[in-house]
Design a protein around this nucleic acid. Structure first.
Lengths: 352, 352
DNA sequence: TTCACATTTGAGACCGGTCTCACAAGAAAA
DNA sequence: TTTTCTTGTGAGACCGGTCTCAAATGTGAA
């Protein structure tokens, strides 16, 4: 591989020579540490200006040990939920003069492990991760730098975490459906489970998924719906078999009369699938989804959503992490942000 | 500021000592360069494994001069257009083992300058930028590392650039409207202009904006529409006065009977505003927008869109940049990707 | 005038890698 | 056997900063 000529950059030594002082003194002025007399300071700054000196952040990081950047690993930047959260993170980071190195896990643990390894090798000062999978968290446990979790808590991991009140949100949303008379309610999520579910919610390690399901089941139990756990559908991401499963779900004789979707991407797919089946919302089927995505307010009918404070979620987790970077050593905090339900027109009475 | 204890990391020297070889030899094995005998290689690898050695990417970058990461400066990751493009970029980058450092300009030149300065200080190997504003590009000209432009070309800047056929796309879209009998057609964009417009499209330095407007004007001229330049509305971002301007536009006596929106965010705002005014699409007003955003296919009526290959846009620009990093020194390439128009139900005959 | 102390400066080690160069040992050629 | 070449290894400079330490200078107190 050919080495690019690499413009010989102006270094501290160059500036020192120009200003006729020692490298150490020039470094003090340029690096903003130690004490320097006013006259010398002015001379060095003048020389730096003349030479168009630009500090090499990498070299600085080498000695200081801190790189001034944090790594963010999200499931999928394409998902508006994550892009908004990332926006929150980077706004806060910028305010503290910290950069964000972004990595996509594609909700795949191996990719996540790899991303973390690379980010760590780049000496990021801290990490914000949205753990892709419930089961494997060994690689998260052995992270040496400050770590904060976004949207998904891991009970076994005592680190700063920001989530929303998933269980309660799911409970309230499901209640909206049971109160409208629905009995066959499906919960659809893109999350994949390692192994069989069989109603053992405690087996799900990813808090977001587990809490929501618990809330869903709470509401079902409240309404006296038996075996509600059978109506929970995992793995509804964007794939062939996920689509097929969705078609099967909607096409079956005893199809649900109401659906609670775990994110707006799944919900959009559901919305389209429902329409393709010739079904009507809310007449034939009611729909509620997590995340107040753009599109949910402009469909016909507009969709009732659980409005998560996504930007605030990103903002808070970044604030927590940065506080930690500054030396805060309080015990890990688990912030739970409240959600609100925005009732629109996608919930109707059960026809059954 | 308190210095975190900083776990003493395992270095090449540590591994060398453990394996009873010189630092140079250990480095050869660990760095994958030079020639080493099989026995020694095995010993070093074993020692590295035992000590759990992790390379320090920063130190490596120091000497090699390359950091293995590229900087990406976009207007707003929250905009689905950009998040999808970023997805394209990072997918390609990952394949080449390159990281992406993301920065948001918020479409503000000063923020853009700052972001570029910081990324350069971090020694990124290359930059992908979506220039925020037309006028100021001095800071782009003086960038020493490879630079590639995404979505927006700058004629004065001879660098790799990937755009879409904006002019032709706007022409075809506008034609769809003129052919439906529309005469009062508005073009609405979030871009802000430095100074007055007055029909002098050549004054607009950002290619995307200029080309689209030229295409729009072409079609209007073709249809014999006079003073079409009066119907071009700048600055329709998300702000109080932008909303007010939108209301004024839709509320006026001689409101347009058709609108071409320059991006899906603007279009969504327009869609909502139109509905709030009690107008109906396409009966009272026709709408076409750039970018086949999620929501455009699920509204009632679904929106006719100019489908840009956004993911490919990001993919291509990343490929171009990475090729350049590998030493390619062909003259800068300007790739123009074709768009297609997806006709849905938002264009109707003019009532006038 | 002399001593203690604070302030400013320079010399050089250091961070954790890469890489050049010299040299030793063994193989092939003469 | 001697010469030449190849291959593997070690010593140490280097990248561009930070930071420790000691020396030099200046200041106020004794």
């Amino acid at each position: 591989m050919k080495r690019p000529p690499k413009a010989p950059s102006v270094t501290v030594s160059d500036v020192a020579r120009e200003a006729k002082v020692s490298k150490a003194t020039a470094a003090r002025v340029l690096g903003g540490y130690g004490t320097v007399s006013e006259t010398v300071r002015a001379a060095v700054l003048e020389a730096a200006r003349a030479l168009d000196y630009r500090p090499n952040e990498l070299a600085r990081s080498m000695t200081t040990g801190r790189s001034g950047s944090i790594g963010v690993v999200v499931g999928d930047i394409e998902n508006p939920f994550f892009s908004l959260a990332v926006r929150g993170i980077s706004d806060v980071a910028r305010l503290s003069g910290i950069n964000v190195i972004l990595a996509n896990s594609g909700e795949d643990v191996e990719a996540e492990k790899n991303a973390i390894r690379v980010l760590l090798a780049k000496q990021v000062d801290g990490l914000i991760v949205t753990p892709a999978q419930s089961g494997e968290i060994a690689h998260l446990k052995e992270i040496a730098c400050p770590l904060a979790l976004l949207d998904r808590a891991l009970p076994e991991l005592a680190v700063d975490t920001v989530t929303v009140d998933d269980r309660n949100a799911a409970l309230r949303a499901t209640r909206l459906l049971t109160q409208a008379g629905h009995r066959r309610i499906a919960y659809v999520t893109a999350a994949v489970l390692s192994g069989e579910f069989r109603g053992a919610a405690s087996k799900i390690n990813t808090s977001t998924v587990r809490e929501r399901i618990l809330g869903f089941l709470d509401a079902c139990r409240e309404a006296g719906i038996a075996r509600a756990d059978r109506n929970i559908h995992f793995g509804s991401g964007r794939s062939e078999q996920a689509n097929a499963a969705m078609q099967r779900l909607l096409g079956s004789e005893d199809r649900p009369t109401a659906i609670l979707a775990s994110d707006s991407v799944v919900a959009l797919d559901l919305f389209k699938a429902i329409r393709e089946c010739g079904l009507s919302i809310p007449r034939d089927i009611s729909l509620i989804t997590f995340h107040n995505a753009d599109w949910t307010s402009v469909t016909t009918p507009p969709i009732t959503v659980i409005d998560q404070p996504v930007y605030a979620l990103g903002k808070s987790v970044a604030e927590l992490l940065i506080r930690r970077l500054k030396g805060d050593d309080r015990p890990p905090e688990r912030i739970v942000l409240p959600t609100t339900i925005i009732e629109r027109m996608s919930v109707g009475p059960s026809e059954a």
